[in-house]
Amino acid sequence: MKIVIKYLLICHVLMLAACQDVIDLTVPTEPARLVIEGSINWEKNTRGNEQTIKLSMSTPYFETNRTSVVTGADVKIIKNDDGTTFNFVDQGDGLYTTDVFVPEMNQSYTLEVRYEGALYVATETMTAVADIDAVNQSIENGFDKDELEVNIFFTDPLEEGNSYLFKFYRQGDLLPELAYFNDDYVNGNDISWWYEKQEDAETDKREAFAPGDIIEIELYGISKSYYDYISILIDQYWNGGGPFGVTPVGLKGNCINTSNPDKPAYGYFRLSEVVRRQYTFE
Protein backbone atom coordinates (compact mmCIF):
# COMPACT_ATOMS: atom_id res chain seq x y z
CA MET A 1 0.00 0.00 0.00
CA LYS A 2 2.51 2.53 -1.15
CA ILE A 3 -0.06 5.28 -1.39
CA VAL A 4 -0.47 5.05 2.37
CA ILE A 5 3.24 5.50 2.90
CA LYS A 6 3.29 8.41 0.52
CA TYR A 7 0.58 10.13 2.52
CA LEU A 8 2.14 9.33 5.86
CA LEU A 9 5.34 10.97 4.72
CA ILE A 10 3.48 14.02 3.59
CA CYS A 11 1.58 14.17 6.93
CA HIS A 12 4.71 13.98 8.87
CA VAL A 13 6.35 16.72 6.88
CA LEU A 14 3.30 18.93 7.30
CA MET A 15 2.92 18.36 10.99
CA LEU A 16 6.49 18.75 11.92
CA ALA A 17 7.92 21.04 9.32
CA ALA A 18 8.08 23.92 11.74
CA CYS A 19 10.40 22.05 14.09
CA GLN A 20 13.01 20.76 11.67
CA ASP A 21 16.56 22.01 11.43
CA VAL A 22 19.79 20.82 9.88
CA ILE A 23 22.43 19.87 12.42
CA ASP A 24 26.07 18.88 12.48
CA LEU A 25 26.45 15.24 13.31
CA THR A 26 29.21 12.69 13.35
CA VAL A 27 28.30 9.45 11.61
CA PRO A 28 30.35 6.27 11.19
CA THR A 29 32.36 5.68 8.01
CA GLU A 30 33.02 2.29 6.52
CA PRO A 31 35.79 1.61 3.96
CA ALA A 32 35.01 2.63 0.37
CA ARG A 33 33.28 0.05 -1.84
CA LEU A 34 32.82 -0.37 -5.57
CA VAL A 35 29.53 1.03 -6.89
CA ILE A 36 28.09 -0.50 -10.06
CA GLU A 37 25.38 1.43 -11.83
CA GLY A 38 24.53 -1.30 -14.28
CA SER A 39 21.37 0.15 -15.77
CA ILE A 40 20.60 -1.25 -19.21
CA ASN A 41 17.78 0.82 -20.67
CA TRP A 42 16.03 -0.27 -23.85
CA GLU A 43 13.79 2.44 -25.13
CA LYS A 44 10.62 1.10 -26.74
CA ASN A 45 10.85 0.89 -30.53
CA THR A 46 14.63 1.42 -30.67
CA ARG A 47 17.50 -1.03 -31.20
CA GLY A 48 18.95 -0.49 -27.74
CA ASN A 49 22.46 -1.12 -28.97
CA GLU A 50 24.12 1.79 -27.14
CA GLN A 51 24.53 1.07 -23.46
CA THR A 52 26.55 2.51 -20.60
CA ILE A 53 27.65 1.11 -17.26
CA LYS A 54 29.01 3.45 -14.60
CA LEU A 55 31.56 2.51 -11.95
CA SER A 56 32.59 4.58 -8.94
CA MET A 57 33.64 4.23 -5.30
CA SER A 58 31.48 5.00 -2.28
CA THR A 59 32.48 8.00 -0.13
CA PRO A 60 31.93 9.05 3.50
CA TYR A 61 28.35 10.21 4.02
CA PHE A 62 29.05 13.92 4.42
CA GLU A 63 31.81 14.03 1.75
CA THR A 64 30.90 16.80 -0.67
CA ASN A 65 33.25 15.65 -3.44
CA ARG A 66 31.59 12.50 -4.72
CA THR A 67 33.55 12.19 -7.97
CA SER A 68 35.40 9.02 -7.16
CA VAL A 69 35.43 7.42 -10.60
CA VAL A 70 36.74 3.93 -11.25
CA THR A 71 38.91 3.30 -14.29
CA GLY A 72 40.81 0.25 -15.42
CA ALA A 73 38.04 -2.22 -14.75
CA ASP A 74 37.04 -5.01 -17.09
CA VAL A 75 33.28 -4.90 -17.79
CA LYS A 76 31.18 -7.30 -19.88
CA ILE A 77 27.64 -8.64 -20.20
CA ILE A 78 26.96 -12.23 -21.21
CA LYS A 79 23.69 -13.42 -22.68
CA ASN A 80 23.02 -16.53 -20.67
CA ASP A 81 21.32 -18.82 -23.20
CA ASP A 82 24.00 -18.74 -25.89
CA GLY A 83 26.98 -17.12 -24.19
CA THR A 84 27.10 -14.06 -26.46
CA THR A 85 29.47 -11.59 -24.79
CA PHE A 86 29.29 -7.80 -25.00
CA ASN A 87 32.43 -6.02 -23.89
CA PHE A 88 32.15 -2.50 -22.49
CA VAL A 89 34.96 -0.07 -23.26
CA ASP A 90 36.57 1.99 -20.49
CA GLN A 91 36.08 5.68 -21.35
CA GLY A 92 38.46 6.81 -18.60
CA ASP A 93 35.79 8.78 -16.72
CA GLY A 94 34.06 5.96 -14.88
CA LEU A 95 31.83 5.19 -17.87
CA TYR A 96 32.03 1.91 -19.76
CA THR A 97 30.17 1.80 -23.06
CA THR A 98 29.22 -0.40 -25.98
CA ASP A 99 27.23 0.22 -29.19
CA VAL A 100 26.72 -3.40 -30.19
CA PHE A 101 24.42 -4.56 -27.40
CA VAL A 102 21.44 -6.68 -28.54
CA PRO A 103 18.60 -6.60 -26.03
CA GLU A 104 16.01 -9.38 -26.04
CA MET A 105 12.82 -9.35 -24.00
CA ASN A 106 12.63 -11.75 -21.01
CA GLN A 107 16.19 -12.83 -21.73
CA SER A 108 18.59 -13.49 -18.85
CA TYR A 109 21.96 -11.70 -18.79
CA THR A 110 25.02 -11.81 -16.53
CA LEU A 111 27.21 -8.81 -15.75
CA GLU A 112 30.86 -9.41 -14.91
CA VAL A 113 33.10 -6.67 -13.53
CA ARG A 114 36.75 -7.33 -12.77
CA TYR A 115 38.37 -4.66 -10.66
CA GLU A 116 41.55 -4.75 -8.55
CA GLY A 117 41.64 -8.52 -8.52
CA ALA A 118 38.03 -9.00 -7.46
CA LEU A 119 35.28 -10.39 -9.69
CA TYR A 120 31.77 -8.98 -9.30
CA VAL A 121 28.89 -10.91 -10.84
CA ALA A 122 25.18 -10.18 -11.23
CA THR A 123 22.35 -11.82 -13.16
CA GLU A 124 19.09 -10.19 -14.26
CA THR A 125 16.30 -10.45 -16.83
CA MET A 126 15.19 -7.87 -19.39
CA THR A 127 11.74 -6.65 -18.29
CA ALA A 128 9.06 -5.11 -20.49
CA VAL A 129 6.96 -2.05 -19.67
CA ALA A 130 3.46 -0.86 -20.59
CA ASP A 131 3.30 2.09 -22.96
CA ILE A 132 2.27 5.51 -21.74
CA ASP A 133 -1.19 6.17 -23.19
CA ALA A 134 -1.38 9.86 -22.44
CA VAL A 135 0.13 12.70 -20.45
CA ASN A 136 -1.74 15.78 -19.33
CA GLN A 137 -1.78 18.39 -16.61
CA SER A 138 -4.25 19.46 -13.95
CA ILE A 139 -4.41 21.33 -10.67
CA GLU A 140 -7.18 19.51 -8.80
CA ASN A 141 -5.27 16.23 -8.48
CA GLY A 142 -2.25 15.78 -6.27
CA PHE A 143 -1.80 16.68 -2.68
CA ASP A 144 -1.94 20.41 -3.08
CA LYS A 145 -5.11 21.47 -4.82
CA ASP A 146 -3.68 24.83 -5.84
CA GLU A 147 -0.63 23.56 -7.68
CA LEU A 148 0.00 22.10 -11.12
CA GLU A 149 0.75 18.44 -11.54
CA VAL A 150 1.40 16.17 -14.47
CA ASN A 151 -0.74 13.03 -14.95
CA ILE A 152 0.59 9.94 -16.66
CA PHE A 153 -1.87 7.35 -18.00
CA PHE A 154 -0.99 3.76 -18.78
CA THR A 155 -2.66 0.36 -18.71
CA ASP A 156 -1.37 -2.33 -16.42
CA PRO A 157 -1.23 -5.70 -18.24
CA LEU A 158 -3.67 -8.41 -17.14
CA GLU A 159 -1.08 -10.74 -15.66
CA GLU A 160 -0.13 -9.98 -12.07
CA GLY A 161 3.25 -8.94 -10.77
CA ASN A 162 4.18 -5.93 -12.91
CA SER A 163 6.53 -3.46 -11.26
CA TYR A 164 7.44 0.03 -12.40
CA LEU A 165 10.06 2.68 -11.80
CA PHE A 166 9.37 6.32 -12.61
CA LYS A 167 12.07 8.87 -13.16
CA PHE A 168 11.04 12.50 -13.37
CA TYR A 169 13.34 15.35 -14.24
CA ARG A 170 12.36 18.99 -14.66
CA GLN A 171 14.80 20.78 -16.93
CA GLY A 172 16.89 23.19 -14.90
CA ASP A 173 16.59 21.25 -11.64
CA LEU A 174 19.67 19.85 -9.95
CA LEU A 175 18.24 16.42 -9.20
CA PRO A 176 15.81 13.96 -10.73
CA GLU A 177 13.12 12.21 -8.66
CA LEU A 178 12.42 8.50 -8.54
CA ALA A 179 9.17 6.74 -7.68
CA TYR A 180 8.18 3.08 -7.65
CA PHE A 181 4.90 1.33 -8.21
CA ASN A 182 3.51 -2.17 -8.60
CA ASP A 183 0.16 -3.62 -9.55
CA ASP A 184 -0.87 -4.87 -6.10
CA TYR A 185 -4.48 -3.71 -5.57
CA VAL A 186 -4.75 -2.34 -9.11
CA ASN A 187 -3.84 -5.29 -11.32
CA GLY A 188 -5.05 -4.95 -14.89
CA ASN A 189 -6.53 -1.49 -14.32
CA ASP A 190 -6.11 1.77 -16.18
CA ILE A 191 -3.59 3.62 -14.07
CA SER A 192 -3.21 7.35 -13.68
CA TRP A 193 -0.20 8.57 -11.78
CA TRP A 194 0.12 12.15 -10.70
CA TYR A 195 3.37 13.88 -10.01
CA GLU A 196 3.48 17.22 -8.30
CA LYS A 197 6.19 19.35 -6.80
CA GLN A 198 5.10 20.86 -3.53
CA GLU A 199 6.22 24.31 -2.72
CA ASP A 200 8.42 24.34 0.35
CA ALA A 201 7.78 27.83 1.66
CA GLU A 202 10.36 27.63 4.42
CA THR A 203 13.43 26.53 2.54
CA ASP A 204 12.57 27.34 -1.08
CA LYS A 205 14.12 24.00 -1.90
CA ARG A 206 11.26 22.89 -4.08
CA GLU A 207 9.26 25.03 -6.39
CA ALA A 208 5.92 24.04 -7.77
CA PHE A 209 5.45 23.48 -11.50
CA ALA A 210 4.80 26.59 -13.54
CA PRO A 211 3.65 27.05 -17.14
CA GLY A 212 6.62 26.66 -19.42
CA ASP A 213 8.34 24.07 -17.24
CA ILE A 214 9.54 21.09 -19.24
CA ILE A 215 9.38 17.74 -17.50
CA GLU A 216 11.03 14.56 -18.73
CA ILE A 217 9.18 11.40 -17.77
CA GLU A 218 10.62 7.92 -17.89
CA LEU A 219 8.69 4.76 -17.08
CA TYR A 220 10.73 1.59 -16.62
CA GLY A 221 9.63 -2.03 -16.41
CA ILE A 222 11.52 -3.67 -13.55
CA SER A 223 11.88 -7.13 -12.06
CA LYS A 224 10.41 -8.10 -8.68
CA SER A 225 13.83 -8.31 -7.05
CA TYR A 226 14.84 -4.90 -8.37
CA TYR A 227 11.52 -3.54 -7.13
CA ASP A 228 12.41 -4.81 -3.65
CA TYR A 229 15.75 -3.03 -3.88
CA ILE A 230 14.66 0.26 -5.38
CA SER A 231 11.62 0.60 -3.11
CA ILE A 232 13.87 0.48 -0.04
CA LEU A 233 16.33 2.85 -1.71
CA ILE A 234 13.64 5.40 -2.58
CA ASP A 235 11.89 5.21 0.80
CA GLN A 236 15.19 5.73 2.56
CA TYR A 237 16.17 8.51 0.21
CA TRP A 238 13.10 10.51 1.24
CA ASN A 239 12.72 9.47 4.82
CA GLY A 240 15.90 7.79 6.08
CA GLY A 241 15.59 7.87 9.85
CA GLY A 242 12.41 9.95 9.88
CA PRO A 243 9.81 9.45 12.59
CA PHE A 244 7.37 7.40 10.51
CA GLY A 245 9.94 5.75 8.31
CA VAL A 246 11.00 2.19 8.91
CA THR A 247 14.38 1.60 10.50
CA PRO A 248 16.82 2.24 7.65
CA VAL A 249 18.90 -0.69 6.46
CA GLY A 250 22.08 -1.30 4.54
CA LEU A 251 21.19 -1.67 0.84
CA LYS A 252 22.04 -5.02 -0.68
CA GLY A 253 22.19 -5.03 -4.46
CA ASN A 254 22.71 -7.98 -6.80
CA CYS A 255 26.39 -7.44 -7.66
CA ILE A 256 28.11 -10.18 -5.70
CA ASN A 257 31.80 -10.03 -4.92
CA THR A 258 32.90 -13.59 -5.67
CA SER A 259 36.31 -12.95 -4.10
CA ASN A 260 34.92 -11.51 -0.89
CA PRO A 261 31.20 -12.24 -0.43
CA ASP A 262 31.01 -9.93 2.64
CA LYS A 263 31.83 -6.93 0.46
CA PRO A 264 29.39 -6.92 -2.46
CA ALA A 265 29.33 -3.84 -4.69
CA TYR A 266 26.73 -1.14 -4.15
CA GLY A 267 24.33 -0.46 -6.96
CA TYR A 268 22.42 -2.88 -9.16
CA PHE A 269 22.50 -4.61 -12.50
CA ARG A 270 19.08 -4.30 -14.14
CA LEU A 271 17.71 -4.49 -17.69
CA SER A 272 14.55 -2.51 -18.36
CA GLU A 273 12.41 -1.51 -21.23
CA VAL A 274 11.68 2.20 -20.91
CA VAL A 275 9.20 4.68 -22.38
CA ARG A 276 10.14 8.36 -22.41
CA ARG A 277 7.89 11.38 -22.73
CA GLN A 278 8.52 15.07 -22.51
CA TYR A 279 5.79 17.41 -21.37
CA THR A 280 5.68 21.19 -21.36
CA PHE A 281 3.31 22.77 -18.84
CA GLU A 282 0.85 25.25 -20.27
Binding site: V27, P28, T29, E30, S39, P60, Y169, G250
Partner: peptide, 25 residues
Amino acid sequence: PVTYPNGQFSYEGLAIANYDDRNAN
Protein backbone atom coordinates in the same frame (compact mmCIF):
# COMPACT_ATOMS: atom_id res chain seq x y z
CA PRO B 1 19.20 3.72 19.55
CA VAL B 2 18.85 4.47 15.83
CA THR B 3 20.61 3.61 12.59
CA TYR B 4 22.89 6.19 10.93
CA PRO B 5 24.45 6.13 7.46
CA ASN B 6 28.02 4.90 7.16
CA GLY B 7 28.65 5.99 3.59
CA GLN B 8 27.09 7.21 0.33
CA PHE B 9 27.20 6.39 -3.34
CA SER B 10 25.95 7.93 -6.58
CA TYR B 11 23.08 6.15 -8.25
CA GLU B 12 20.65 7.31 -10.96
CA GLY B 13 21.90 10.87 -10.44
CA LEU B 14 21.20 10.84 -6.72
CA ALA B 15 23.39 10.55 -3.62
CA ILE B 16 22.23 7.41 -1.83
CA ALA B 17 23.01 6.74 1.82
CA ASN B 18 24.11 3.34 2.94
CA TYR B 19 23.19 2.48 6.52
CA ASP B 20 25.04 0.93 9.41
CA ASP B 21 23.97 -2.09 11.51
CA ARG B 22 20.50 -1.93 13.04
CA ASN B 23 20.29 0.42 16.05
CA ALA B 24 24.08 0.73 16.21
CA ASN B 25 23.97 4.50 16.79
